[in-house]
Simulated scan of single mutants.
Amino acid sequence: MLNIRIEKATTLKEKPDPNQLGFGNIFTDHMFIMDYEEGKGWIDPRIVPYQDVVLAPSAMVFHYGQEMFEGLKAYRTKSDEILLFRPEMNIKRTNTTNQRICIPQVNEADVLQAIKAIVEVDKDWVPSLPGTSLYIRPFIIATDPFLGVRPANMYKLMIILSPVGAYYKEGMNPVKIWVETEYVRAVKGGVGFAKTGANYAASLKAQMKAKEKGYTQVLWLDGVERKYIEEVGTMNVFFKIDGEIITPSLEGSILPGVTRDSVIQLLKDWNMKVSERKLSIDDLYLAHEEGRLEEVFGTGTAAVISPVGLLDWDGRQLTVNNGEIGPVARKLYDTITGVQCGTIEDTYNWTVKVNQ
């Protein structure tokens, strides 16, 4: 168990209007920091006032991109409890990412303790309005002042918090998606399955192109044949065709999402046919032309469930379910958010109370 030192902020920030929350632009009063030194391990866990991080210009993170991050949320229930949703999966994925990019493993129980501790200190920042939550961003960066190419010997693990509203301004309304054919995000053998910034940097060019054309997000195809669907920029993706719900299988180039896993479990328990397998963009459009495509939706921590109303592939526009929210997407959203906020019984033991 960590012995976390706590230094409280002497001046607290004004809380934002919960009706005006965006995503990721407001930060709470405190942050968690823990250092790693080779030969000593992870040391000096502490909660301090939210502050700038001072690093040498030669810090390795700036030059070789050795960093990882995670994202999860805390929710306030009607009985004023604060719940985390499946945090153990995010922490396990932290170590999966760490292993791939040569960051030292973390003690998963210690990280859960740290998350609980920082949320408890800033619990007054957890909003209570429907659709709002406290976004939790743990991340690790390499801090050695060294310009040689090797894994670092020094790191910082930090956790910052941000009260948030809906990730997409459209909310639960169906979004428009651009199918990217020029650029690729990841390939098998790379870091596509890891939660590291390189994946997101590689996606920005296509994201900018999609935004300029009026689309909310990018749907990525595989990096080799450019034909098999992989994931949306910030979400895993599901397609309901002929009653079967299909999502791309985890083969090393897409992120194993926590919400994705939750959706698969729910669908199976609802006796719905759900498959993890390859699906080509050609077959998707053929299913639409033949009237067999029923729903498309994305899944992720930020948006939870995001229905897709339109896809554009090389100018061929595909309208899904008349641009309306489908019944499966609606049921999944209501169920998962109900569990997260404590209004639906958590029969899966997915939630963790912060004050336990």
Rank of each mutant, 00 (worst) to 15 (best):
D261Y: 08
N355P: 00
R277W: 03
T77A: 01
G131V: 04
G65D: 05
L72P: 01
L204F: 13
T94N: 06
N349P: 01
E231A: 04
K188A: 13
I305F: 04
K331P: 05
N321A: 13
S306G: 03
G197R: 02
D52W: 00
D283K: 15
V119E: 01
R260F: 11
N90L: 06
F193R: 06
S133C: 03
L55N: 02
Y215G: 06
H30N: 06
L250N: 04
I118K: 03
I246N: 02
K123P: 01
D52R: 01
T343P: 00
L310S: 09
W270H: 10
G189Y: 05
T97E: 11
I26P: 06
V187A: 14
L161E: 08
K195G: 00
R76H: 04
V191T: 15
W220V: 05
R316Q: 13
K273S: 14
M154N: 15
E170K: 14
P49C: 05
K353Q: 15
N95C: 07
L318E: 00
G309E: 08
T94V: 03
D124Y: 08
I264R: 04
A166Q: 15
K278H: 15
C341W: 01
E7W: 11
G190C: 10
A152T: 04
Q340D: 08
H288M: 02
K15E: 14
F139R: 00
H30Q: 10
G65M: 09
Y168I: 09
S133K: 01
G338T: 06
I254D: 09
